[in-house]
Design a protein around this nucleic acid. Structure first.
Lengths: 356, 356
DNA sequence: CTGAAAGCGCTAACAA
DNA sequence: TTGTTAGCGCTTTCAG
C-alpha cells in the first residue's frame, strides 16, 4: 500500500506493473465497465502484488458520490438509539454506503456538525431524535441534501420524517390502563419540546379525559434514567399518588419501576402499573418485565433507508411524514385488563378491538 | 451550495464573486496560511453568499489526510460497546477527526470492511473487542495504518492494544468471593477465543486454587444475555450448584441474576453471589444492583486516542499493550466480606489490601 | 500577501 | 475492448 517513499500506491503504479493503461486499472474497479478477462487478470495480479486499493476520495471527486451517510444521534446512553444506529449501519452497508457518525451528546453546538456534514459531501443525513435546532435540517435541505428525521417530526414541512405511531401508542396505552381498572393516571414526559413526547402525551390525555377520568398528573424526566427517578419520586410522594404511570420512553419507565419497587415498596402489576415506550432490550429482562409500546426499530430504519434511496435517485420527492405502527406488548409491570390480550409466540400483546 | 445546474459551489466560484484568485479562497480556509484581513473578508462574504464549503475529499487528495478514523465495533446490543463508541466519537471530534463506523454484527465476512477501511484512506483504525480474524489488524498494519485494539489483546505483537486489567480483575474477584465465604465458585466465560475472557478466567481460577478451594465450574455464555441464561440454568441445576458466579461481562451477569432470582428463587447477596465485569449503566439500576469489576471506559478510550495520536505524528512507535487498572464496585448481588470495603462517595469498593 | 500553475488519484468521454 | 485526454476541487510551490 505504500512504496519506499511512503507514497500510496496509485492506479498508475498498478498500470505500469501490469503493462496496461491507467484507465484499464480504473475500469477493473468500476462495475459495469468493459475490460477483457485478460486485462482484468493482469491488473488484479499487479494490484495484489502492490496492495493497491482505489482511493475513494479521488473517485468521489469525479463521480460526485461519496457513499457516505451522516447519522446524527443523541446520547447512546439510551439503548434505543444504539439499536437504531446499528440497524442503520447495517441497512446502509447493504446498499453500499458507510455511516459517518455524529454524536451530539454533551455537545449542544451543532454548528461544527453541520459544517462537517456538508464538507464531507455525505449523500444524505439521518437525524435520529434530533434535539438540534430544526434549522439544521433546513440548512441541509437547502443544499439539496436528502434529510430524514428518525423518531422526531419536523416542525416545518420541508423534510421527511419517520416516527412510530405516537398518537396511537398514547391512545392505546390509556385504554389499556383504563381497561385494567386504573383511576389515577400520570405521565412522565421527555421534555416539552419533543414532538414524540408531546404526541404520546396528548393522545394519552385525550383518551383519559374522554373516558371521564381526571386529567393525568405530569412530571418531566428529560428522557433520562436519573431524571425519571426524581420525577417518579414526586409522583409517588403526592398525597394522592397515581395508580398507573405512562412514561415517554423505556429508560424512564424502568427508572419509575425502580423507584416504585425499591423506594416505595410497591408491587408493579399489583398496586401500581408502569408502561413504557420503545421496547428496548432490557424491557424483556425478567427482572424488569416492562409492559411497553413497541417502536418497531427495524421497520422504521428500513423506511428511512427507503426514503433516502428514493431521494437519491429522483431529486423531486415530496417530503412526507411516515408513521410506522407499533403494538403494546404486555409483560409484568401493569395490571392486566380482563380482555383484549393476545398471545403471539412467547409474547402477549393487547388490542383495543380484539378482532384480529 | 448548488447553482442552477446542480453543480456544487467551488472555490473558483467564490473567487470569481470575491474578485480574488482561487488560491486566496483556499488560503482563507487553510489554517496557518497568510491572507490579508481584507481578502479574507471578501472571500468570506462571497462564500456566505454562495453557501460555499470546502470539499474535504479534494483536500484530502492533496494533503493525504482524510480526518477519518475507522471504528469497528461488534454488536451494539452490549451497552459497554455503545458507551465506548460514544466516548471514542467524542474524543476524536475534539482532535478534529470524525468516526467512520463499521459494525460487525451479523456479518462475519470482514473482508468488505477491510477493503473499505483502506479505500476511504482512514488515518487509523480502532478495533473494539474485535472478533475479526487477527489478520485484519495485520493487514492494516502492513499498509502503515495505525491500529489499536480496544478491549482485546493482540496475539501477535505487532499492534498496540488497550485493555483493562483483566488479570487483576479475575484475581480480585476471586479473593472477594473467597473473603465472602464462598466455597463453590463458577465462571461463565465469553468464549474460548477471547483474550479478555481467558485472562479473567485464568487469574480467577488460579487464585481459587491457590486458596485451596476446588476448581470453579465453568460454562460458556457467548458474551450474550441469552447465552448466559442457558449457562446459568445448567450451573444452578447441578446437584452441587455454585454459591458464587463470576461472569466475563455484565450482560451475562445480569442474565445470571435473572435466572437465579426468577427461576431458582434464590436471593443474590444471600444464598447466591453474582459478580460481573464492565460496569455498564444498567449495573447501577437498583433492581439490578450488580457487583462488578469496573472497566474504566473513559480512561481506556483516552489512552487509545493517545496511542493513535502518537502514531499519527511519529511513524515509529513501538506497539505496546496498555493495561488500565479498574476496581471492584460492590453493590447488592454478592455477599459482603467482613473487611476490605471502602466507601467512595455513594459507591462502595473492595480492596484486597485495604491500605489506601 | 497574492496569483499562476502544477498536480493529488481518479473517472469519463472520445477515438482508435 | 483499449489508450489518450481532460478535468473533479483542492493545496502548494513559486514568482512577483
Amino acid at each position: 500500500m505504500v512504496d519506499k517513499n511512503r507514497r500510496l500506491i496509485t492506479a498508475h503504479d498498478v498500470a505500469r506493473l501490469a503493462g496496461v493503461s491507467q484507465s484499464a486499472v480504473s475500469r477493473t474497479y468500476t462495475k459495469g465497465a468493459s475490460v477483457s478477462p485478460a486485462t482484468r487478470e493482469k491488473v488484479e495480479a499487479a494490484a495484489a502484488a502492490l496492495g493497491y486499493r482505489p482511493n475513494l476520495a479521488a473517485r468521489s471527486l469525479i463521480t460526485r458520490r461519496s457513499n457516505l451517510i451522516a447519522v446524527v444521534v443523541p446520547s447512546m446512553a439510551n439503548p434505543f438509539y444504539s439499536a437504531v444506529l446499528e440497524a442503520l449501519s447495517q441497512a446502509f452497508e447493504l446498499k453500499g454506503y458507510r455511516v459517518l457518525l455524529f454524536s451530539t451528546a454533551s455537545n449542544d453546538d451543532s454548528d461544527p456538525i453541520l459544517e462537517d456534514v456538508l464538507r464531507y459531501r455525505v449523500e444524505a443525513v439521518i437525524l435520529v431524535s434530533s434535539t438540534l435546532s430544526s434549522s439544521f435540517a433546513e440548512e441541509c435541505k437547502q443544499t439539496g441534501l436528502p434529510v430524514v428525521l428518525l423518531n422526531r417530526k419536523n416542525d416545518s414541512q420541508t423534510v421527511s420524517s419517520v416516527t412510530s405511531d405516537n398518537v396511537e401508542g398514547g391512545r392505546l396505552t390509556a385504554n389499556f390502563l383504563i381497561a385494567g381498572g386504573h383511576q389515577n393516571l400520570a405521565f412522565i414526559a421527555g421534555n416539552d419540546l419533543s414532538s414524540t413526547s408531546r404526541d404520546r402525551e396528548l393522545s394519552f390525555t385525550r383518551e383519559i379525559l374522554s373516558n371521564g377520568l381526571p386529567p393525568p398528573m405530569r412530571e418531566i424526566g428529560n428522557f433520562s434514567f436519573d431524571g425519571a427517578i426524581i420525577a417518579t419520586r414526586r409522583l409517588l410522594a403526592a398525597h394522592q399518588p397515581p395508580d398507573g404511570i405512562f412514561c415517554a420512553n423505556d429508560l424512564m419507565a424502568i427508572a419509575a419501576l425502580n423507584v416504585a419497587t425499591k423506594e416505595f415498596g410497591l408491587t408493579p402489576g399489583k398496586n401500581i402499573s408502569i408502561v413504557g415506550f420503545d421496547n428496548i432490550e432490557m424491557a424483556r429482562w425478567p427482572l424488569i418485565g416492562l409492559t411497553t409500546y413497541v417502536q418497531p426499530t427495524m421497520n422504521m430504519v428500513q423506511r428511512a433507508v427507503e426514503i433516502v434511496s428514493a431521494q437519491l435517485s429522483e431529486s423531486t420527492v415530496a417530503p412526507t411524514d411516515h408513521v410506522i405502527t407499533g403494538s403494546l406488548i404486555v409483560r409484568q409491570t401493569a395490571r392486566l385488563p380482563s380482555s383484549g390480550l393476545i398471545c403471539v409466540g412467547d409474547e402477549t400483546h393487547w388490542r383495543d378491538d380484539p378482532v384480529s
